[in-house]
Computed example of a mutant assay.
Amino acid sequence: MSSSDSLSSTAVAVVFFRPSTAQVVRVAERFGGRMPIFVFDNGGIPPDALSQLGTTPGVVRLGEGRNLGIGAALNRLAEAAAAAGFRRLFLLDQDADTSPDTARALGFALDRLAGAMKGQALVPALIGPAAAPNPGHKAPRYPLRPRTPPIGALLPVEFLATSGSLLDLAAFDVIGPFREDFFIDAVDLEWCFRAWARGFACWMDPATAIPHSVGRGTIRSRFLPLAMPDQPAFRMAVYVRNTTYSWRLPHVPTRWKLKQMAYLPAQVGLYWGHHGFDPRLLVRLLKAGAAGLLGRLGRPADAPP
């Protein structure tokens, strides 16, 4: 694909779960008629927003309004886009504040990577923007991949958020789908580590940036340089479960497992304290960690419909 052709084989993929009408309208207005839009309805799209999607050119709506989790939604979107002949997919969540210009810039960057890495053992699979500051929210950090040099200003990273990233669908077909049994948290992290283990690479373009909103705000430690998103207990439990399960996976690097083994207990303690040291909450998080270690994944019993 040439740089001048950077959007001709690219579609937008958006997962909606209980979005506001304004969030749906923003996607429709910014991308409608400019790029094909594949939408997955995980539930709760307001009726007026559904009407807006119905009149927006180029929209393909998937899903039946039931919450299948982010992994399943992304997989269905990738399958549909590939079947329709698209080669790249610009992944978004409903909070993403971006435009076709970002997709175009990432397409140019992915073209440069493909040219520079031609004939090498690694193949670029995913490129995403840097995380722009978002007041009230902790911006995610994307660690650099050791022993992999940058290519110009483009940086190899261990993982990055799916939202705002440009996915090469041929690479996705080889690497495999996102884990549906993770349901929501750490889906992108596990997939990127799997990509690296299979000879593919994930990249960040610092020249592009979009804000990310994870959770309802940020919890900060009074005594340690530690901050984390404040999320509902259901989602925190899924995060704990998926993190401990990842310690079982051979493609997750030992350096990352050791870091998380030190970091996760601090996160649990910080979250527990922020929510009033409720014993029931601590038991819930400890049971979630045990479930991960035992490989008990899947849709959580208390997942929102």
Rank of each mutant, 00 (worst) to 15 (best):
R235D: 08
G33I: 00
A130R: 14
P57V: 10
D302T: 07
K259T: 01
P250T: 01
D188Y: 01
L144M: 08
T55A: 07
H251D: 13
M1R: 04
V157T: 00
E180D: 15
S51Q: 11
A186M: 14
L113F: 01
A186L: 15
L74R: 15
P46F: 00
M228C: 10
P305R: 10
S246Q: 15
D205T: 05
A132F: 00
R296V: 12
A114E: 10
L282F: 00
P300L: 12
A139H: 08
E180W: 13
D93R: 06
R104G: 08
P229D: 07
G32N: 07
V24K: 03
L106A: 11
G33R: 07
G215A: 12
D205W: 04
H251G: 00
T244N: 03
Q260P: 02
S3E: 13
L224F: 11
A186V: 08
A105G: 09
A125K: 06
L224T: 13
P149T: 02
V14C: 04
R26M: 04
N134K: 11
L167D: 04
R76Q: 13
R66K: 15
P156W: 01
V60A: 09
F31N: 02
K257Q: 15
D302H: 10
A82Y: 07
I219L: 14
F183E: 15
A49R: 07
P129G: 11
L286P: 05
D188N: 08
D168V: 05
P300H: 13
K138H: 14
V15L: 15
F182K: 12
D48G: 03
K138V: 14
M228Q: 15
